[in-house]
């Protein structure tokens, strides 16, 4: 029963206009970054052709020109600001809608509450995760058509934005593709969990729009907390805001596995408890 329910929920999640819209919007945003960096790379090519300068090949390549490798372009800023919205748009609203319309009654009696809520969680997670990662992968592949995949050199760390204490900096300078893949996996998991905030919020709110917007406000609230945490100029803090540490490039403080895994676990436990365990105990009218 659970397998059938997951299949049905995934079909609903992936075959809907909102999923396509969110992925398309994400891809369009990444194009802004790509166009910007194509311009920069053209300038750098011109400079490289000069005889009397260091061409600095390792400072201008795919791994620091794709959207995840640079924090400066409008596309990059917009994408890593809007991703909570883009992950919730595909299917985060569905529970809210089904509760309001009464569809939930038919579905839970057919499948049982456990299967229904678990399948919904799975589908919301996967839709959010894919909506987060597809535009990034799209940008990476598209960027690969324009920029050479030169091995980054730590000599140019000010250009790459990956420093000695950055997360997985060793991978970045030795197996950069693996670094990108691991970051895409982190973003995949976080994208899914952030979409599940929307599902958990639907347990309390009546309107789909509110459920979809809430993850963005939650992320902004966490980001706002930074100013109360980072109070000393002498301490080398770790990044706590997902809006920064989900970027494969170090935007401010270095990311750390402890913070990433702790936030991942907290998000999973809270959203899973609210939307699957707590909500399951409620009666359905």
């Amino acid at each position: 029963m659970l397998r059938q329910m997951i299949r049905m929920e995934c079909r609903k999640a992936f075959r809907n206009k909102m999923f396509y819209t969110a992925v398309a919007a994400g891809c369009i945003i990444t194009l802004f970054a790509l166009v910007y960096y194509i311009g920069i790379y053209q300038n750098e090519l011109t400079m490289m052709q000069a005889d009397d300068v260091n061409p600095m090949h390792e400072a201008s390549g795919l791994f620091n020109f794709w959207i995840g490798g640079e924090p400066f372009s409008f596309g990059s800023a917009a994408y890593f600001f809007m991703f909570p919205l883009l992950t919730a748009i595909p299917y985060g609203w569905s529970y809210c809608g089904e509760k309001r319309s009464g569809y939930i009654r038919t579905a839970v009696v057919q499948a049982g509450k456990k299967a229904y809520f678990l399948a919904k969680y799975t589908a919301v997670f996967l839709s959010g995760a894919l909506a987060m990662v597809i535009p990034l992968a799209f940008d990476f592949l598209l960027s690969a058509l324009f920029f050479p995949a030169v091995m980054p050199s730590p000599v140019y760390c000010t250009s790459t934005g990956i420093f000695y204490d950055s997360l997985m900096s060793m991978f970045y300078y030795t197996v950069p593709l693996l670094y990108v893949l691991i970051y895409l996996l982190i973003d995949f998991i976080f994208g899914g969990l952030i979409a599940c905030i929307s599902y958990a919020a639907a347990c309390f709110v009546r309107y789909r729009v509110v459920a979809v917007i809430l993850p963005l406000f939650f992320m902004l609230a966490v980001h706002y907390l930074r100013q109360f945490v980072y109070i000393s100029a002498e301490v080398r803090y770790k990044e706590i805001s997902p809006m920064f540490f989900l970027r494969p490039v170090q935007a401010a403080y270095p990311a750390s596995w402890a913070v990433i895994l702790a936030e991942m676990a907290a998000l999973f436990l809270v959203t899973f408890f609210l939307s699957v365990i707590w909500e399951r105990k409620h009666e359905i009218y």
Binding site: M1, Q4, K12, N16, Y103, R105, T106, A115
Partner: peptide, 18 residues
């Protein structure tokens, strides 16, 4: 209450599939 984006048959087929 059914899903607005599907036809009547698709809606019933989906529910029956559970």
């Amino acid at each position: 209450a059914f899903l607005g984006q599907y036809s009547g048959y698709e809606n019933l087929n989906m529910l029956a599939g559970i």
